[in-house]
Design a protein around this nucleic acid. Sequence first.
DNA 1: ACCTATACTGATACTGCATCTCAATACGGA
DNA 2: TCCGTATTGAGATGCAGTATCAGTATAGGT
Lengths: 139, 139
Amino acid sequence: MSSAAVRDRMLAAGQRITRQRDVVAGVLERARRPLGAGEICDAVTTSDPDVGRATVFRTLHSLVAAEIVQRVTLAGGQSGYLLCAADGHHHHLVCTSCGRTTDLPEAVVAPFLSRVEETHGFTVDHSSFDVHGRCADCR
Amino acid sequence: MSSAAVRDRMLAAGQRITRQRDVVAGVLERARRPLGAGEICDAVTTSDPDVGRATVFRTLHSLVAAEIVQRVTLAGGQSGYLLCAADGHHHHLVCTSCGRTTDLPEAVVAPFLSRVEETHGFTVDHSSFDVHGRCADCR
DNA sequence: ACCTATACTGATACTGCATCTCAATACGGA
DNA sequence: TCCGTATTGAGATGCAGTATCAGTATAGGT
Ligand SMILES: [Mn+2]
Ligand SMILES: [Mn+2]
Ligand SMILES: [Zn+2]
Ligand SMILES: [Zn+2]
């Protein structure tokens, strides 16, 4: 995902483009796996020591709200932040060995959620799946 | 789930029975929804002010490791702890209105995970689903 | 290019969850 | 009852995330 594409998506979401947000987005663009809060703060500080901690979290929050960044749960249980090429909310497989993620196609998830709604009379507002294991490459 | 049953399951998991663990388990037994860490600490202190904070978390950790207590994600994103009658690891629906949980039958989850493994060549080690919405009673 | 409303920012203090240390204690099998 | 060791409490510490608020920079209109 290019830096220009991220900027376009942020503008489309009614958010302003700032130097600080470029730095945070740049860190996530360069990552090939979800990063924890600490990793992001460190990398941001390395890129630009003048970006404040609060701004990093505010930016992550904005990116998540705009569904540009997805929040996933890492193996340890802590939150990870992941910049996806795919638009909107979707689910991931997280490899416990290499840390990389794979998108879970909606075609697989939707029928599962439909079945849940049918069998339990439950209306699903929001779902997030944490599926940890070994990816095809790491077996 | 009775207090005796919890004790049996803790013993079966090779854990000792202590006054402190009884207090923590008692708090979870009386709850009809997953409790957050703060709620648990407060309730434990009310029951017995001499139980230390670290012991509460150690006990929760032990109970989760023994799969007596399940850890779920609450609507706000924070962890909730839930004592289930059902043995072993399983998944839940969490109602955003009343906070109560419903077990997700393995018969619904297993085929989904099988399909994920087949279509992605992914070996699932651990999965946890957070499905938030409105339960049948709250609609 | 300039103006302006306001979205954004940084420093700092603060909350809440969770873990670590280590000496003291209590559990439970023999 | 005795003993090895699992467990405990206090307090410090770490880490994720939020609140405040005065100052700044952006986007969009002219
Ligand atoms: Mn993705
Ligand atoms: Mn359950
Ligand atoms: Zn892998
Ligand atoms: Zn409900």
